[in-house]
Design a protein around this nucleic acid. Structure first.
Lengths: 231, 231
DNA sequence: GGAGGTTTACGACTCATAGTCAAAAACTAG
DNA sequence: CTAGTTTTTGACTATGAGTCGTAAACCTCC
């Protein structure tokens, strides 16, 4: 019994996870699936899975996400952080690289039966460290909303300023003024009027001007000045 | 020969790396060591090594860094990104989680013979994807300099405004005005006068007021407004 | 077809942050 | 004491951002 196990036996499993966020019912929500087996049976978890030998981390999270949602509906995907606490998984040594995914307002992807959306500020019991991962993904989104154009990934293809304001309000967790938002985003060249109008709702009101994110808005990740909370 | 290799044989090696940055000779530099063996023999590489089974990622990079520099001289350490391209290491499947480390101006850590500092904008031949990792660490630093107090980790314990201006200039790659820097950092409460003065150099000149980062400066990571390039 | 209600758009005002510049202050060396 | 050097300070300007009131454009109901 002097043979040591091969070195490979001491390697951790590498998994990728994604916190896919979307504004639904005026609230920022995250896509979770309910575990059927231990550990954390019946708790909710982020989509993801084990990294394959011939794929990049991003390819891996895309492959696993595709089993839960149509990838074409995920408008943005970026790596957030890697979690390697040896105790994070009670049954196996596992390293997880977490991604942030964003789905635009209005689309309603079809998802498997075990998978549903949950408000990020009112989560059900979650397994592993997924609760912390969700909150850091939300914080990443909030930070980037104010100084990049990442908001395009949460907004539909065309939108009114009120709709966009509601998206920002839900994602940031505080009110923003539509007047100010328009001036800021127009100056940045982030949004452009489409020329169209939107029918007012049945309650009446002036029809809203329709906007879209400009083409170059997608590439802009340089910091802008900040959108701050009111007062 | 129908026995499959155990599943563990298909797992990647997990390593941690650190881009340790410091302003030296008025230029932002990174700590590299020269490889003596293939792959990438004689090329320069970031300090780091394999993750052990009972340690966190941060503990791992601290353990490996300690073989190159005195950890007490690394004032800041944060995770930047994880690199998992299956081709990034030609001989082994390896995932690398990269950290950014910062060493204050003026300290000159003793380092092993194979290890020296190199300007980040004039790197020697580097192995693996370490060149790209260094540049993304530099970009992370530059971004955070303008909207957090991360600069404290690049400045000595006490400093004059001219010294601090020089640190910012070297790290950002563009001039900043000492007048403006003082006003901005004072308003943020990031720096406080120590009450002391600095002897003018042998060339004469008014003695400089001495400043230090305030205690709470270390915790502030909320975004501030931006420090932008001139003109 | 008004009147009243509702929603969006626009302009004026204020405030905070930031960039520039020139002059004053405080020192050294001769 | 004078000239030279470096730091500090205050004034001025520019710009980005927050607020608010009013006008515009639509609806429904009478």
């Amino acid at each position: 019994m002097s043979r040591k196990p091969p070195e490979e036996f001491t390697r951790p499993t590498q998994v990728t996870l994604a916190a896919v966020l979307q504004v639904r019912d005026g609230v920022l929500q995250v896509l979770l699936w309910q575990r059927a087996r231990d550990p954390f049976r019946n708790a909710w978890a982020l989509p993801g899975g084990v990294l394959a030998a011939d794929e990049t981390l991003e390819a891996s999270i895309r492959r696993h996400l595709a089993t839960k949602v149509d990838l074409a509906e995920v408008a943005h995907l970026e790596q957030v952080s890697t979690y390697g606490d040896p105790d994070r998984n009670p049954v196996e040594w596992e390293i997880a690289t977490a991604y942030l995914g964003l789905v635009p307002l209005g689309v309603d992807p079809s998802v498997p039966k075990d998978t549903t959306w949950h408000p990020v500020d009112d989560l059900p019991p979650t397994g592993f460290d997924h609760g912390a991962i969700i909150h850091s993904a939300r914080d990443r989104l909030r930070g980037k909303l104010s100084y990049t154009n990442i908001g395009f990934a949460l907004a539909p293809a065309t939108f009114t300023l009120t709709e966009l304001r509601d998206v920002y309000t839900a994602a940031l967790g505080y009110d923003v003024s539509a007047t100010n938002l328009k001036r800021v985003l127009l100056r940045r060249g982030a949004i452009v009027p489409t020329g169209g109008r939107r029918d007012p709702g049945r309650a009446g009101g002036r029809p809203a001007e329709e906007f879209a994110y400009s083409d170059n808005a997608l590439e802009v990740t340089d910091p802008f000045a900040t959108l701050r909370p009111p007062e």
